[in-house]
Each structure stands twice: as structure tokens, then as C-alpha cells.
Amino acid sequence: MHHASDILLTLFVVFIAAQIGAELAQRLKLPGVVGEIAAGCVVGPSVLGWITPDQIATGTPLDVLAEIGVVLLLFAVGLETRLEDLKKVGKVAFLVGVLGVIVPFAMGSLWAHGNGFGWSRSLFVAAAFVATSAGITARVLQELGALQLEESKVILGAAVIDDILAMLLLGAVVSLQGGEGIAVGHLLAVLAGAVGFIAVIGVGGARVMRWNSSWLDKPRNPQSALAIVLAICLGLAYVSTLFGLAAIIGAFLAGMIASETRQQHTLEKQTEPLLALLTPFFFVITGSKVDLHQLANAEAGVMLLVVTLIAIAAKLIGGFLGALPLGARAATVVGFGMVPRGEVGVVIASLGLTAGVFTDQIYAIIVAMSLLTAMVTPPVLAWLLRRRGAAGGG
């Protein structure tokens, strides 16, 4: 049972930890998100224990608040992303998304099989290498004011494709764990539904908003436009989960639709206080979920290092090859932008643990890999983007 006073104290601890972590990171010339994730590791169960495992379990107030935070973050990113801009990089984004799934899946399954897993379990392990966390990269791009760059459009477009393919792969490998064959017809139906949902909402919704958005101001509430688009955001976040997609995809689409309205700039300003309050919870909670005790021996440390290097290299190679038409410098930015696994890898690891596919140690290693890729990427991406700017690339 969660008492109101205990919840408020925990919220206070998490929020203050996020602010201190972000401030320290920025003083070290690192993106604030790195400090927020690190702060989560410190105040979480593995170090100070100010956040306990039962407080961050699925469905708890902290978990829900973290989910709302990342949903709002992707909504805000969508607000700065126009459909026409994504169309311009559509082919490159598709290549990046596809290769960014194939290469990590192949490398992850080979590593797992080489470490004694049977092929069906190896494929489950490999699924944790696949899906990019759009939330991590989006926050870095937003902090650096780089959302309008061509590379950023490619990353965001590829992240949507990545999510669809990762969802299909996960469905396939879960079927294999139960000894079932892969139901190709079912997977194709799921794929058609997901693509149809994105196409109808993304293209149809954008056209409707472009045609007439004055109805957003019809209610008497002076903030009616914000209230209505936030309702659309939450609604589409939910509907996207019905199609097997991450909630953040629906939130991103809602923001992209709202970016076509004449109230776009007002909406951006009005969402800033909400982001300042809620998004830090997502990153601190993400950091708090790693169990450092499972990694406190040399064997686990070496395995974590190898897994993390494979995870980084696989996404970097896939993203780089897919984005090569933009040039080597831009392709490197895109490749690193696709590296973070974040909460997606954590979710897949949790499914593997529940299904009995992973031991506690393998689970901890995959979760730690997901968080390490989330922490390593922001400073490297920031450095690459600053170099790009210094070289006159934007």
C-alpha cells in the first residue's frame, strides 16, 4: 500500500536528484539526461536505496509518472517535427530503420549462441539489442536545439520504423519460447495494422489540422488548444499500444499533427513547464532500475563490457550504412543517434526474466547494457553535433 506522504517524499527525492544530476552533468559539458540517469543509479536500490524496487515496479505511481513524462517528451518532439520534413528523408530513414534492426539482431543472436544459449533463446536475447529508445536521443537533440537538422529527422523517422520491426521480432521470438511456430499470417496482420495506424494518423491527421485548426480555440478556456492536443496525445499513446507499438509513437504522432496548427509556437511554450516537471522522472527511474549487485564480479563485468560494445557497434554500423547517402559525417551522427536502448531494452529484459529465458545475472547485464548505451550516447552525440556545427554543416 502506498501512503500519500511516502509517495510525496519519493517524488521530492527523485525530482531533486534529477535537478542535481542534470546540473552536474551540464557543468561537465555533458547533456543533462546523462546526469539524470546517473542520479537514478545513485538514489536507486543499488546504492542509497532511497527508491526501492517495489516503488518502481510496473503500475506503481512512480512508474506511471515516468511513462507520462516520456509520452510528453515525445509529444514535444513531435511538435517540432513537420510531416513534410520527414517525407524528405523517408528513404534514408527507412534504410536506417531496417539495417538498424537487422545488424544488431544478427550480432546479438550470434553472441548469445556463442555463450551457450540455444537458438530460440539466443533470438530472445538478440531482441533486446534491437529497439532504439527514441526518448533518450530526442531529449539530447532537443537540449542541443538540433531537432531541425536533417540527421535528426532521419533518426526520428527511423525510430518509428525501428519500433514496428522490433515489435514484430519480439512477437516472433516470444512464440518460439513456447515451442510454437512463427505465425507469419498473424505477424503480417500486426504489421499491416501498425503501418495503417501510423499512415492514417500521421498523414490524415496532419491534413485535417493543416486545413483548419481554429476549432481548437472554440472552448472558453484560454488554454483550450493545449488541453485538446494533450487529450489527443494521451488518446493516441493508448491507441498505439493496441497496435503493439510503444505509447511514445502515438505521442510523437500527436505532436506531429499539432505542429501543423497555427497555434504551434504557443503550444510549444505552454508544454515547457510540463516537460520541466515530468520528464526528469522518466530518466531517473530508468537509471534506478539497474541492479549493480548482479554485476559485482569480474565475469559479469567482462560480459557487460562485451555486450555493450556489441550493442553500440551494431546500431552504429546499421545506422551508418543506412544513412551513407547523407555523407559520412551525417551518417556517423545518425548511427550514434540510434544507439540508445533505454527503456525498450529494459522491457524486453523483463519479459525474458518473466518467461524464464534469462537468469538474474543475464537480466542485470541486459538492463545495464540498455542503460549504458543510454548514458554513453548523449555526450558522444553532443560532441559530434558540435563538430558538425563547427565544420559549417548547419
Rank of each mutant, 00 (worst) to 15 (best):
K91Q: 13
F94E: 05
L95H: 14
V103A: 03
V103Q: 11
P104H: 13
F105K: 06
F105A: 14
A106L: 15
M107P: 13
M107H: 11
G108A: 11
S109L: 09
H113N: 15
G114L: 11
F117K: 08
F117Q: 07
G118V: 09
L123R: 09
V125T: 12
A126Q: 11
A126E: 12
A128Y: 06
A128C: 13
F129L: 03
A131E: 02
T132Y: 03
G135K: 00
G135I: 06
G135M: 00
T137N: 01
A138T: 06
L141W: 02
G145A: 07
L147C: 00
E150A: 13
E151W: 05
E151G: 15
S152E: 00
S152R: 05
K153H: 14
V154K: 10
L156K: 03
G157M: 04
A158T: 03
A159W: 04
I161D: 07
I161M: 15
D163E: 08
I164R: 01
I164S: 00
A166C: 06
M167C: 05
M167I: 06
G171Y: 11
V173E: 11
V174E: 13
G178S: 08
G181A: 08
I182L: 14
V184G: 14
L187M: 09
A189Y: 02
A189S: 15
A192V: 06
A194V: 06
A194K: 01
V195N: 02
F197A: 03
I198S: 00
I198C: 01
I198R: 00
I198Q: 01
